[in-house]
Design a protein around this nucleic acid. Structure first.
Length: 273
DNA sequence: GTCGATGTTATCAA
DNA sequence: TTTGATAACATCGA
């Protein structure tokens, strides 16, 4: 489901709704995607207070008192919701944290690709899923980005998706970024002119910031912690629009599999060079 | 009912 | 080095 803008929206929601709250109860319904294990989360989270929320790429961190941190990844369908206990629990709800204001923080994940990890705050950045991340897409200096592009012969789309190079861009935003930059997704990364590489970087920042301002994209069932859908899907120029007219040139958007992912682009304004 | 695709990523083979 | 296939799993639409 979620890429950097959606994770950022969730983190902001946690900051607004959960930080400052204490967990007064913990209910585990299914713990097979939790580390060290479900019981460790139950025991470790009970009576803790959330003190901060942050993220790196698509990985989020909920810092707690006692120098603990709940780290996690939504992968495809992971979801945090803050809800009244009277509201019926959605299917695939796996963990429920009772908050000291009477509400509940609920974690659900239909496909169960997502994960949560509880450990010392100091160790949270040493998790294998975190250590291997490249620079956050919003914080990566332009020069470092250009250098990364020059250093690889892979298709530019694959580069944008490589979390060890630049963290946070996923399939939707990679396509939107390349369309805004006018770059073909198959273009070998090291063959981009400096000017075009700069355009890709500029488009990456522009698209991600605009998507955050719109609270992310809801193409299927993504919602933030308050249950609100994002609205950036209304601004998608290529993603999911095969057969429709390009907003720039009116050519038909096509869909092809590139870098093993469904890829949408305009063959006219995103020519291979 | 079947098939293919889905916003993610780890792993393994070529 | 890089790519592609496969796997994890559930749901939705054709």
């Amino acid at each position: 489901m979620p890429e950097l803008p959606e994770v950022e929206t969730v983190v902001r929601g946690l900051r607004a709704e959960v930080v400052g709250r204490r967990f007064v109860s913990v209910e585990l319904l299914r713990g097979d995607r939790f580390r060290p294990d479900g019981q460790a989360l139950v025991a470790g989270l009970l009576h803790r207070q959330a003190v901060a929320a942050r993220r790196l790429g698509k990985v989020f961190f909920l810092d707690l008192d006692d120098d603990l941190t709940l780290t996690g990844h939504l992968r495809m369908t992971g979801q945090f919701r803050v809800q009244d206990p009277l509201i019926e629990r959605a299917p695939h709800t796996h963990l429920i944290l009772g908050l000291d204001d009477g509400r509940e923080l609920r974690w659900r994940d239909a496909r169960r690709f997502g994960w949560l990890h509880l450990g010392a705050t100091a160790d949270s950045s040493a998790l294998p899923e975190v250590v291997k991340l490249g620079a956050d897409a919003l914080a990566m200096p332009r020069e470092a980005f250009l250098e990364a592009l020059r250093g690889s012969r892979r298709a530019i789309k694959a580069l944008l998706l490589a979390q060890d190079i630049v963290a946070g861009v996923g399939n939707i935003y990679a396509d939107e970024i390349l369309h805004r930059a006018g770059v073909n997704p198959r273009q070998a990364s090291d063959t981009l002119s400096p000017a075009r590489a700069r355009k890709v970087h500029e488009a990456m920042l522009g698209i991600l910031e605009a998507a955050i301002a719109a609270s992310g994209s809801s193409v299927s069932q993504y919602v933030d912690v308050s249950g609100e859908a994002g609205s950036f899907q209304q601004s998608h120029r290529v993603y999911g629009r095969a057969g429709q007219r390009c907003a720039k040139c009116a050519s038909a958007i096509v869909r092809e599999v590139i870098a093993s992912r469904g890829t949408y682009y305009c063959p006219h304004c995103q020519r291979l060079r």
